[in-house]
């Protein structure tokens, strides 16, 4: 049982399924991918989570290659090509030498969709609590249902995993240790605005991606429609800095979205503040705070033999999608070894 259909959960499930295990993935969202997310707005894909994928691990790159090989996505190698601004990227390693960067014309969610294609995935189901049911672990679901499993993988943002761990009883040494460890770590929030403009605006945007320096509000401006073939409209994605996002996390989008568009106007031109439409997204747990990553996934063995494991972006060095993918893969290998 894997909770969380983001890249780490999907890769973990995929590797376990390939090794012959019966795996079910469960997620609260309507689609797979977690923060590797794409929305369709007026028929056009918009990446409102991460803007592109990057990595250097051969296994991860092979998985990216497989997306195109199976006809599941059209890779845009080297995207973003035009990068402006001297602000810091969310992932400092993204532009390191030897790092490969790629986006997909269909949206970055082409990657998780590809990972999920042979998996059993149950969507729109939230796990509300964990418990011990005899020798197995029980998952309480928001629809009142209950599933039990010998092995449960939590492939969730750190805070959500921590919340679920808190529903288990204390007194198991490894579990207490892991809980204490997670209490020292955290993730960063990111408020996001997607905005549409007339198509001719797109030709005048001089960048694919911009990391503004000196803006308290803006972390990143992505020229999203630059990733689309013959886009019907110009779409920009604005992502806010962690502290700015944290201050407004509980506020209504109507309070912060105009403010973020205004900040972009100061940077890119007044046109940004008058979009044809805009949508918002609140990424409560957007990414790992650099320095919060752990070395590897975690497996807690319960006295009866049940196992609870954790994977995700926080459970591999470096953070980002690559770390999420590798933590899922490493966890699957470890679980398989211990199964056998």
């Amino acid at each position: 049982m894997v909770v969380g259909a983001g890249v780490s959960g999907l890769e973990c499930a995929r590797a376990l399924a390939r090794a012959g295990h019966d795996v079910l993935v469960i997620d609260k969202a309507r689609g797979v991918g977690g923060r590797c997310a794409t929305r369709r707005i007026e028929g056009q894909p918009v990446d409102h989570g991460l803007a592109f994928l990057h990595g250097s691990d051969p296994g991860f790159l092979a998985a990216l290659d497989a997306v195109a090989a199976d006809g599941a996505g059209t890779p845009l190698e080297g995207w973003p090509a035009a990068v402006q601004g001297s602000g810091s990227p969310c992932q400092p390693d993204a532009f390191a030498p030897g790092e490969r960067r790629v986006a997909f014309a269909e949206g970055v969610s082409a990657f998780p969709k590809h990972l999920a294609r042979e998996l059993r995935v149950r969507l729109q189901t939230r796990v509300t609590a964990l418990g011990l049911a005899g020798l197995r672990l029980a998952l309480e679901l928001d629809d009142g249902g209950r599933i039990d499993a010998e092995t449960v993988v939590l492939a969730l943002p750190l805070e959500q995993a921590r919340e679920l761990l808190a529903t288990l009883p204390a007194g198991i040494a490894d579990l207490d240790g892991v809980r204490a460890l997670l209490s020292m770590l955290g993730t960063l929030p990111c408020l996001t605005v997607m905005a549409g403009y007339p198509p001719e605006i797109g030709a005048a945007v001089p960048f694919d991606l911009c990391y503004p320096a000196g803006s308290r509000a803006l972390q990143l401006v992505a020229h999203d429609s630059a990733k689309r073939a013959a886009p019907a409209q110009c779409v920009m994605v604005y992502q806010a800095r962690p502290a700015w996002s944290r201050e407004r996390l509980e506020a209504e989008p109507s309070q912060w979205a105009p403010e973020l568009l205004e900040a972009a106007a100061g940077l890119c031109g007044t046109w940004t503040a008058q979009p044809l439409w805009h949508q918002t997204h609140r990424w409560r747990f957007a990414r790992v705070d650099r320095g919060s990553e752990l070395a590897g996934p975690v497996v807690v063995q319960f006295p009866g033999g049940a196992r609870l494991a954790l994977a995700g972006e926080s459970f591999a060095p470096g953070g980002g999608v690559e770390a999420a993918f590798l933590s899922g893969r490493r966890l699957a290998a470890r679980l398989h070894e211990e199964f056998a």
Partner: peptide
């Protein structure tokens, strides 16, 4: 604990 140390 072993697991916490492994993760660290």
């Amino acid at each position: 604990t072993v697991e916490a140390n492994l993760a660290l």
